[in-house]
Design a protein around this nucleic acid. Sequence first.
DNA 1: CGGAGACCATACGGCAGCGTATCGATTCGC
DNA 2: GCGAATCGATACGCTGCCGTATGGTCTCCG
Lengths: 187, 187
Amino acid sequence: MEAKTLNRESWLSAAFSALAEGGVEQVRVELLAKRLKVTKGSFYWHFRDRMELVEAMLEGWKTGRIEAIKAQTRLDGRTPAEGLRYVLSLYGGSSNPRGIAIELAMRDWARRDPRASEIVAEVDRERLRCVSDLFAGLGLDPDDAFARAYLFYSFIFGEGLLARSAAPDRFEKARDICGKVLVPEGV
Amino acid sequence: MEAKTLNRESWLSAAFSALAEGGVEQVRVELLAKRLKVTKGSFYWHFRDRMELVEAMLEGWKTGRIEAIKAQTRLDGRTPAEGLRYVLSLYGGSSNPRGIAIELAMRDWARRDPRASEIVAEVDRERLRCVSDLFAGLGLDPDDAFARAYLFYSFIFGEGLLARSAAPDRFEKARDICGKVLVPEGV
DNA sequence: CGGAGACCATACGGCAGCGTATCGATTCGC
DNA sequence: GCGAATCGATACGCTGCCGTATGGTCTCCG
């Protein structure tokens, strides 16, 4: 199973893990090398420098996320409401900790790096567009649909920020109720 | 106006600025010293080491935020709905960028530091309690009130994460609509 | 089998940050 | 005014990280 030799993808994958666990600051070539059980001699074979890795991460994340949201909101026989509940479930609760961690790390990164900020903006644009289309499919006018999408995504990301340990036993039920508020049953 | 001599508060204030701008990683004693136009000789007079500064930040933030939320949700003649709209306005939009930045940096910090995580959890507990009390004052039963508070805070924090530049011209209107959804007029 | 290229190790210089040690300057109590 | 406490400067060693240079070891192919 273990590839004898590393490639760009190996380093990118390790970099995203480091990003998820510790933010951009933790994607350092010597730490990644230790994680991959090689020396940085390997890294500088596959990448010109750390910048190149970091930019590959941005680009890869962007295209990946945009593809993902398009696929996730393509309703093949589903109703818009079902589609929305599906998207919500993808990020809800503990169902995708790595994805959520990367998402949050990315956004923290974007707060101080204009390149990351631009990437996140592009992804958000696409996501808001896709999700507000679903809300529009529910019969909402464009402004309301956009606002709902805005609320939808703010909730999703904000949920990852709220300390789970603040009241662990009440969160599950709260999430259910929030789901009902976010994607109304009968509009 | 300028105090001739620095004290703990001076360093703490600079530390929070650094936190807001660059996250915990950026609160470094030599950078703070440069910002304060002194050398770190001063720092190590007021603090044992970097840890002590960092823990003072946590403690100070905790007590400050808990006092704040208690004051903000004490409705002196206001209705619960007015109180909720007031709290929402405090964090909404661009009304308190430094506060929001610190809030987000704090939460990013909490994702990897258990001490920070515990502090944030304590603050969140208090906030959720105060805000769900307001929702309860609107006539909601406890579970619904908590869920609404959960949605309320997820939205507030998540909003700071959504890329503003994704659709700058539509955000203000969206926020208004979100406000109406978050704190219902007539429940 | 032998050379070329892919992949990685080793070793180095450089910088930035932490913390310590020591000494200088200013202020305040008495 | 003098000594002590307060506050800050300078200088040092240490560590972790980036990037480079150079050499070693496979593998593939002719």
